[in-house]
Design a binder for these strands. Sequence first.
DNA 1: ACCTGAACACCGTTCAAGT
DNA 2: ACCTGAACACCGTTCAAGT
Lengths: 237, 237
Amino acid sequence: MAKNTAAAAARASGGGVTRQERRSLRQEAAVNAAVRLAERDGAAGLSMRKLAQELDLDVTVLYRLFRDKDELLLALCERTIELALDEIGEVPGAEPWQDTVRRVAEATWEVQNRLPVTTALTFARTTGGPAERRMVELLLSCFTRSGLAPERAVLFYLTFIDTALGLCAHAASLSSLNPENRAKDDTTWTRVYARLPEGDHPITRTHADELARVSRKAIYDTAVEAILTAAERAATG
Amino acid sequence: MAKNTAAAAARASGGGVTRQERRSLRQEAAVNAAVRLAERDGAAGLSMRKLAQELDLDVTVLYRLFRDKDELLLALCERTIELALDEIGEVPGAEPWQDTVRRVAEATWEVQNRLPVTTALTFARTTGGPAERRMVELLLSCFTRSGLAPERAVLFYLTFIDTALGLCAHAASLSSLNPENRAKDDTTWTRVYARLPEGDHPITRTHADELARVSRKAIYDTAVEAILTAAERAATG
DNA sequence: ACCTGAACACCGTTCAAGT
DNA sequence: ACCTGAACACCGTTCAAGT
């Protein structure tokens, strides 16, 4: 749905495809290929050369579509937000603001889960693009509907989105380590913490099993609910 | 204080410096130089070659101190935790658990602020090393003291630490972008969002000033307090 | 005006050849 | 046994030379 926007625009405009529209189409194709490449080969596997090869282009053509690799990354960031917005779909107008925020949290997690490498590469960026703008408007409308004064609404909006993205990036950057490093990291709780010597770290030792059992999604949900509750209390209190 | 641990151990053991101790000393020197290099030249500037050069070593010697670059990064991660522990200092035994958690949050932010590049490079890793183990024990002792059952104590501990690290990494990865990209990102709120056309995004438009005014530290504090409150309520409720 | 290949200055990592 | 330089297979990015 988010895909082929430029194509649709081109067709709607009545036949003649301008240079600008062809450029947009090629950029979108490049973004699609970049996501595929990143998820298949990992963060280190997404190189300008390999992407060009995948698209049957010379690298320098890619450099005319995107000024540099950073601009490609910003386009990837926009794409992840587009996917989240697609995932969210239409929001019932009468829905309580908290539930809309929860929808956004779910959709963002879903995208992180599906595209961990892309998420890890882009989580901390601000694009200023159309998808990001729609997302900002959607979330700000929730936090203002809650009854918070502008200053507080903005503070809680940013706390929510940065926390959600930070935790998604945390989860994503684990899933996007090389297999061996991933395994090294993943099993640390049981490998190291369950086998601590008797005397040291008594509390950690008795909690090692629980530590290995907690899922990243449970952590994410706990953080999201904590921030929602804090916003509610700030609004009504 | 965290530095020269190996040196102290070597001297205490009575004169003869073993191969193992010399190795530890060289690893520590490498970590120190790596932090300096990363903060001076950015994440892309921390390469095995440049680090070896900085230490007047052949690259391959570096590869005998650390199996690969990832092992160096884990050592950097340990170092950031050591610095946070130094920052925390002695914790008064009778201190309310919430205040101890706040100390940890402050110290972690402080380190992020001082070493953004190193923080951004390492935030999502689990090292299983001694500094990390001390930090886990300290924080778990807080969340169990709060009266939470083991399962919940662990859930809130992980929610706290992952949220704190995620937000620190968010802030850090902004401070560690190349100057131009950083500027591009930083001013987006005023550059793009304050100039939105009248019709679209009305809520964002009216909040653009506030959005540009919120500091990353305020966001961090809001998230930390929200999680502390949620933990308190789960413990007493 | 557009495309192209070669080049520049780097990477992480390995290994045969030296002392 | 330890150290070393050169090499391999890559990077992002640029630019002169072609059509």
